[in-house]
Simulated scan of single mutants.
Amino acid sequence: MKTTEPIRVIVADDQAVVRAGFVNLLSTQEDIEVVGEAQNGHEAVELAAALRPDLALLDIRMPKVDGIQAARTILKEGNGTTKALMLTTFNLDQYVFDALAAGASGFLLKDTTFPELLNAVRVVAAGEAMLAPAVTRRLIAEFAHRNPGGGTAQLSAPPLDQLTAREYEVMLLIARGLSNTEITQRMTITDNTVKTHINRLFSKLGLRDRAQVVIVAYELGLITPSGSG
């Protein structure tokens, strides 16, 4: 007997074909239910207020109200009940920082594969954050552009000697854009163990989310805009 409630999703994109594609793909899954569609940020905010979905899949660039402002409003009014997953393209990377500041839990490229889309929806709906590896690299590049000298970041780089070897390894994998599932596979440990490592390294370093891990890893020279490190 199925006892778990499906993940309730709204999809917002001003391009009808793109929006329909995401809706049709998500609707094939038993554990995901698309409860609404929006063609702009204003409609997305109204839908979220009326339906209280688990997740809002939002295009960053939309008319009337863009995805960033929509995410900010939805997350504020939802009081933690709704998560935001942003759709982006390579030429919109300058908005990534703003979306993170608005509280978005992750990013997907518009040309994402079906398995990547499903994984992202499930990961974010479960309360985790994720950044696609390609987006993570560009986030680092954008951060480097804004802070070319390093050491003047929004976050001060904390010392890492308080981390265990496993926590340090998890930190590097997060900074490279891996999800919890991918980390479990890479390190051959359980999902619960990964979550424990993440919670501990966040606590020890005083970090809020994966995006801050990326920034700190860049500050410390552990990863670079080229994706190496």
Rank of each mutant, 00 (worst) to 15 (best):
M1Y: 11
M1K: 10
M1E: 11
K2E: 14
E5R: 12
P6F: 06
I7M: 08
R8E: 06
R8S: 09
V9S: 00
V11W: 05
A12D: 01
A12E: 03
D14H: 05
D14E: 06
A20I: 12
G21K: 04
F22P: 04
V23G: 01
N24A: 11
T28K: 15
Q29G: 04
I32P: 03
E33L: 09
V34A: 01
V35W: 09
A38C: 11
N40K: 06
G41W: 01
V45R: 00
E46K: 08
L47D: 03
A48C: 08
A48M: 05
A49D: 09
R52K: 09
P53V: 02
D54V: 08
L55Q: 05
P63W: 07
P63L: 09
D66Y: 07
Q69I: 15
Q69G: 12
I74W: 03
I74C: 07
L75Q: 04
T82E: 06
L87M: 09
T89Y: 15
F90W: 06
N91H: 14
Q94L: 15
Q94K: 15
V96C: 14
V96N: 14
D98V: 03
A99K: 03
A99Q: 00
L100N: 09
L100D: 11
A102N: 03
G103M: 03
A104S: 10
A104K: 07
G106T: 02
G106Q: 01
L108Y: 05
L109C: 07
P115T: 02
N119S: 10
A120Q: 08
V123G: 00
V124F: 02
G127Q: 05
A129F: 14
A129P: 10
L131P: 00
P133C: 01
R138H: 11
L139I: 02
L139T: 04
A141L: 11
H145A: 12
N147P: 08
N147E: 14
N147G: 13
P148F: 09
T152S: 15
A153C: 15
A153P: 11
P158A: 13
P158S: 09
P159A: 08
Q162K: 14
Q162F: 13
Q162P: 14
L163E: 02
L163C: 04
E167P: 06
E167Q: 07
Y168E: 08
V170H: 10
M171C: 02
M171W: 02
M171R: 03
M171E: 02
I174F: 10
R176G: 05
G177W: 04
S179D: 02
N180C: 11
E182G: 13
I183P: 07
T184C: 13
Q185N: 12
I189F: 05
T190E: 05
T193D: 09
T193Q: 14
K195E: 11
T196H: 13
N199P: 10
L201N: 02
L205C: 12
L205H: 07
L205P: 07
G206Q: 08
L207D: 03
A211V: 07
Q212G: 05
V214R: 00
L220C: 06
G221T: 06
I223D: 03
I223G: 04
T224V: 15
S226W: 14
G229L: 04
